[in-house]
């Protein structure tokens, strides 16, 4: 029973083919992308599956998920808005922006909206201090930057996602 292999057999084969037979464990990163793409997080079952595919221990896989901040081991919103509120961004109003956004969405940093569309997170430096307030959006299939933001522009973005969801 290996859900990942059943679901993405061909893609996983292609990934594994890129690594020498004795270095298969190096494929853990791309396999985690595949696992996370489905639900936006890596479940324990996924970790077991990857461990089995690469003949390493589940604990090894979990260590890697834990080390990288962009792998998640718990389900959250479809879109993760990651607002940088480090000092330079705060000087350009990132804290106020974060508060405003949270108020509007009715959540606290780290929480997900009841409709499951958005999770708001405060994160460390995203290397765009001069464009603050800014955030990155991590969705199931990638990451996008949104710079020089206002609460209004951010809310507009969220409304767009909600509409998208409503229309299926």
């Amino acid at each position: 029973m290996n859900h990942l292999r059943d679901q993405y057999g061909k893609e996983i084969e292609d990934v594994l083919a890129r690594y020498p037979e004795t270095q298969k464990r190096a494929a853990v990163m791309p396999l985690l992308y595949i696992a996370q793409r489905e639900d936006g997080y890596v479940s324990t079952q996924d970790m077991d599956d990857i461990a089995e595919l690469l003949a390493i221990s589940t604990t090894d896989v979990a260590s890697i998920v834990g080390f990288y901040t962009l792998y998640h081991d718990e389900q959250a919103g479809r879109y993760r808005i990651q607002v940088c509120n480090d000092l330079p961004c705060a000087l350009r109003g990132a804290d106020d922006f974060l508060d405003g956004l949270c108020d509007h969405l009715g959540v606290k940093p780290g929480e997900t909206t009841p409709d499951g569309v958005v999770t708001v997170e405060a994160v460390m430096c995203l290397a765009a201090c001069d464009k603050a307030p800014m955030f990155q959006v991590q969705s199931y299939d990638g990451i996008a930057y949104h710079e020089v933001q206002t609460v209004k522009s951010a809310v507009k973005l969220v409304d767009g996602w909600r509409k998208e969801k409503a229309s299926g």
């Binding site: 324990t44 970790m47 221990s57 589940t58 604990t59 090894d60 896989v61 979990a62 260590s63 998920v65 834990g66 080390f67």
Partner: peptide, 14 residues
């Protein structure tokens, strides 16, 4: 193994 990093680093077993 280790999970997380920096001050949050902790020993885990899965």
């Amino acid at each position: 193994g280790f999970s997380q990093r920096g001050r949050a680093l902790e020993i885990i077993t899965f």
